[in-house]
C-alpha cells in the first residue's frame, strides 16, 4: 500500500516533464508518418540545429523563471555579443577563438549589469530588461548601423555549421549547457537555493540565503549563455547579423512554459525548456514540410503552442488535485 503510493507520488512529481516529453515523442512519430521527409537526415539535422538555439536560450530563461523573474533582453544580448565577436575578428584582427571568448565574457558582463540593476535598485525584471534590451539593441545599431559584418574567418564556421557524427555541433553545445544547468539546479546547494528563492523569497532570506547574490549570479549566467548562442549563430551564418534573436525572448519563455517551468517561479525542470523548444520547432518544420499555405502557418503553430501550454498546465492541475486528495 505504502509502496504503491510512493511510486504514484514520484510519477506525479515528474509528471509535467514526462508528459511533455511523451507529447514530443508522439508528435515526432506522427510527423514521420505524415511527411516522408521529416525523418530525412538533412531535415532532422537542420531541425535540431534550429532548436539548439531557442532551446539554449530557453534553458537560460528557465533559470530565471525558477526564481520568479525573466529576461527580455536575451535576444539583444545574443546579437550584440555576436556583433562584438565579429567586429573583434574582422575589424580588430583578434584571433577568432579569442574573440569568441571575449564575447562570452562580455555576455556575462551584460547579464551582470542586468542583475545588478534589478537587485540593487529593486526594479521589476520584466520592465528593466525591456529597457536594457533597447540599450543593447541601441549599442548594436550604433556599432553596425544595421549592416551585417561579413568575412568572418572560416575557422569558426564549424562551430555553427558542423556536425560531430550526425549531430549538429550547436546542439552539442546546447546539451552541454543543459547538463551544466541541470547539475547546478539539481545537484548543488546553489540550485536548491534557486528553487527556494522561487518558492518563497522571504523564507529564503530568513533561512540566511543570500538571495540577491544568487539572483545576480543567474542573470550573469544567462547573459553568458546568450552570448554563446549569439556567437554560434554567427558561426552558422558566416556573418554577424544585427537582427538575430528578435524572437528569442518570447520563444524562450514559451519553450520553458511548455516544458513545465512555472512563470511564477519555484517549480519546473530546465530540461523542459529544451523539450518545449523541440515541440515548437517540430511544429513549424512539419507545417512547412506539408506545404501548408504560408498565410496559415503562424495561426497553426500558434494553436499548437497554446495547446501544448494548456496541456502542461492541465497536468499540473490534475497532479495538484490528486495531491490535495491524498492530503
Amino acid at each position: 500500500m505504502i509502496n504503491t503510493k510512493k511510486k504514484g507520488l514520484a510519477t506525479l512529481r515528474r509528471s509535467t516533464l514526462t508528459a511533455i516529453t511523451l507529447i514530443l515523442f508522439v508528435m515526432v512519430v506522427i510527423a514521420g508518418f505524415i511527411s516522408p521527409y521529416f525523418l530525412d537526415m538533412y531535415n532532422l539535422q537542420s531541425l535540431i540545429r534550429d532548436l539548439a538555439f531557442v532551446g539554449m536560450i530557453g534553458i537560460a530563461q528557465s533559470l530565471l523563471l525558477l526564481v520568479g523573474e525573466l529576461d527580455l533582453s536575451v535576444g539583444k544580448i545574443a546579437s550584440l555579443c555576436g556583433i562584438l565577436a565579429g567586429m573583434l575578428m574582422v575589424n580588430g584582427g583578434v584571433d577568432p577563438f579569442l574573440s569568441l571568448g571575449i564575447a562570452l565574457i562580455l555576455g556575462l558582463v551584460f547579464g551582470l549589469i542586468n542583475g545588478l540593476l534589478i537587485t540593487k535598485l529593486r526594479l521589476n525584471s520584466m520592465v528593466a530588461t525591456i529597457g536594457m534590451s533597447s540599450v543593447y539593441g541601441g549599442i548594436n545599431l550604433v556599432l553596425t548601423k544595421g549592416k551585417a559584418i561579413t568575412q568572418i574567418p572560416e575557422s569558426i564556421y564549424s562551430l555553427g555549421k558542423g556536425n560531430i557524427g550526425p549531430i549538429p555541433i550547436p546542439f552539442l553545445f546546447t546539451l552541454g549547457v543543459l547538463l551544466l544547468v541541470l547539475f547546478l539546479t539539481k545537484k548543488t546547494k546553489t540550485g536548491r537555493y534557486i528553487y527556494a528563492i522561487g518558492n518563497n523569497r522571504e523564507a529564503a532570506s530568513i533561512l540566511g540565503i543570500k538571495v540577491d547574490k544568487i539572483r545576480v549570479m543567474i542573470y550573469a549566467i544567462v547573459g553568458m549563455i546568450c552570448a554563446l548562442a549569439g556567437i554560434l549563430y554567427v558561426a552558422r551564418l558566416g556573418s554577424s547579423q544585427s537582427t538575430i534573436g528578435e524572437k528569442w525572448p518570447m520563444m524562450s519563455i514559451a519553450s520553458a512554459v511548455i516544458g513545465g517551468v512555472a512563470l511564477t517561479g519555484g517549480t519546473g525542470n530546465p530540461a523542459g525548456a529544451l523539450v518545449g523548444a523541440a515541440i515548437i520547432s517540430v511544429i513549424s518544420n512539419v507545417i512547412v514540410l506539408l506545404g501548408v499555405s504560408v498565410y496559415w502557418q503562424s495561426a497553426v503553430s500558434g494553436i499548437v503552442i497554446v495547446l501544448a501550454i494548456s496541456f502542461s498546465s492541465l497536468s499540473t492541475i490534475i497532479s495538484e488535485k490528486k495531491q490535495k486528495k491524498l492530503g
Binding site: S35, Y42, N43, D50, L237, E246, S281, V288, Y295
Partner: peptide, 20 residues
C-alpha cells in the same frame, strides 16, 4: 515558406522546404 523579413526564419523554413 514565409520568413516575415527575418533571416533566422528564412533559414529554418528554407531548410524544411529543401528537405521536403
Amino acid at each position: 515558406g514565409i520568413d516575415n523579413d527575418n533571416i533566422e526564419e528564412a533559414q529554418s523554413q528554407a531548410a524544411a522546404v529543401l528537405a521536403a
